[in-house]
Design a protein around this nucleic acid. Structure first.
Lengths: 340, 340
DNA sequence: CTGTTAGCGCTTTCAG
DNA sequence: CTGAAAGCGCTAACAG
């Protein structure tokens, strides 16, 4: 492996000039030619480790994710990686297995490795570990989930509004008796807030009995869904606050051979089939009405914002929260109960 | 950020001794205590960039994958990353979007970045780019797919044998009229070989008309499956050589409301639901009989082998091919045609 | 625009 | 086991 010193000898141009040239600064035409020839002849490649020593830049960023086998993340990270690598950055994947402690430890380990920035989909409810990096001027973008009392850039979706609007739509169609199955993450809570506000704003009341919280580690979404179905005053529409709840609904539907929407109307936040070529689920008609998230865009905006933060390291800035729009797909899974 | 020089001053021990201590070599007890105290007091963290400059080690490895949104890869890479990070290595994710040219380019870019090794699930049919890294003594482990004429460590599964055995089993159950829908990758071809050899070894003949190759970019698996179904001498059993073909079968099944296995028996290589909590598909009874791959193990063995190669850099070795066993899940989707 | 000259922080001989 | 000293390959003042 040849070094810049070899290029210096071969070309007769000093290594500082060579270094400048390699960083795109202008050099004398004669020198440019000599340098280029020497580089080609020696097949010289700059050593990024050595170059990083002085500048303390690794051109690598970390992606801290709870679980890469959750179908939500691959499309996001794929686009993120594409954008970053287009700009010369590598993405170091770190799957912390939904373990908040491991998330914190990994962030520490990786920031010791001098990465230039991070995107994090956090499972923590505390924010010290992130605040500390921010204080050290390490750029971080939160994905999907925010943290209370933390001023940090983020890319999220309109969880609250999208649910509010979709439920309002259902109310217009005559639904008054709602049920919900929801999880315990930030996004679930936002969505449930939208659900409840829509009901309230339309002069209706949500029965707390019919709003069931599911902790995936302990509880089963399908049981919760079935429980709602079996109530004597069963809801006419059940809202599933995320994909796992939606899958629970799907299981009950298949098991009991439910007629949708005659037996019950269903609205799911998220797409059940986010994987390319896994859209077979759409052949089970009618598809569940759903609110779908722009996963690729999340990755793209995260990359753009992170790159901007990295490139302007000492610029003081206000944290930016980019809230992307979801899409409401109304389908036959929601019954029209009124006749206008 | 404090440096080793600060620790030298603070502790009064020379930085060479400190460096040795940090690398686990034994030092005088007195010095050990002084060093440890100084490190704690200064909150010293070794700078991995500087340390890599001399040793030319980055403690990072690359994972070159065709498509991280293909449900096959996340479980593999999750375990791979877990094992590597346990050993102090980072995993740089590189999704080359199923583009063989980009795969080659990315390998070049990343090897210029001095990564310590790679796992690659290649989409190429040529092997020069990999051979060149191997010649430069850069450890590489191939995942899932081999390359002709390339001596390289690899982790694969028993594509040929597993299919051979499963089809033999079906023949015992009375099937004689087989169809297949298969792809154009290394694994598909291996599996089809097993399919054909089993038929031949049992004194039967495979009708070439009933073996349909599907290029996912241009053709549709469901069309191929439907075509087999609509033949006048339609096969009693259709083999789907990978998950995409299996999903095609599932779509036709749902669309036409097929009775399985009365209308046709189905055997799929791969699991349709590899994602946790996406097992709703199992509620569509009977499930397709399938051959399932040990994805987590693939990641584990890849990490172990790669770590071994990295740790013994100058040891000459023979390329090792670890072939993992798949599991045949017989279900009611395969009709028993004979009455013993 | 160019070359000289110090480093960046850590590793690794080498002599003791 | 230890410390002095010489780099690893590149960057960035500085003076010209």
């Amino acid at each position: 492996m040849s070094t810049i010193l070899d290029v210096e000898k071969e070309s007769g141009v000093s290594k500082s000039t060579i270094s400048r040239f390699l960083h795109g600064r202008s050099v004398n035409e004669e020198n440019r030619i000599k340098i280029e020839e020497a580089i080609k002849k020696l097949n010289y490649k700059m050593n990024p480790i050595a170059s990083g020593l002085k500048s303390s830049k690794t051109f690598s960023v970390g992606a801290l994710l709870p679980d890469i086998t959750d179908s939500f993340f691959p499309p996001i990270i794929k686009e993120f990686e594409r954008c970053m690598s287009e700009n010369g950055y590598n993405v170091i994947l770190s799957d912390y297995g939904n373990n908040p402690d491991k998330e914190r430890k990994q962030l520490e380990v990786l920031s010791d490795k001098k990465l230039d920035g991070f995107v994090i989909a956090t499972s923590n409810t505390i924010s010290e570990h992130i605040q500390q990096c921010l204080d050290d001027n390490l750029p971080i973008i939160l994905l999907d989930r925010l943290l209370p009392d933390l001023e940090c850039d983020s890319i999220t979706v309109d969880n609250f509004n999208a649910t509010y609007n979709a439920i309002s739509e259902c109310i217009k169609m005559g639904h008054t008796n709602f049920g919900a199955v929801y999880g315990h993450y930030f996004t679930d809570v936002e969505r449930l807030r939208g659900f409840q506000k829509a009901i309230k704003d339309n002069g209706l009341k949500a029965d707390p009995e019919k709003i069931i919280k599911v902790h995936l580690a302990d509880d089963s979404p399908e049981e919760a869904f079935a429980k709602l179905l079996d109530m004597k005053d069963a809801p006419s529409l059940i809202f599933c606050s995320n994909i796992y709840m939606g899958i629970g609904a799907l299981k009950v539907r298949l098991q009991r051979n439910l007629n949708i929407p005659e037996d019950v109307s269903v609205l799911v936040f998220d797409d059940i089939a986010t994987f390319p070529n896994h859209d077979y689920i759409s052949y089970i008609k009618p598809e569940f009405a759903n609110i779908s998230q722009p996963l690729t865009e999340i990755g793209k905006y995260a990359a753009e914002l992170l790159l901007e933060r990295i490139k302007n390291p000492d610029r003081k800035y206000e944290a930016v929260n980019i809230e992307l729009k979801t899409r409401f797909n109304m389908t036959g899974s929601i019954a029209k109960l009124n006749n206008p």
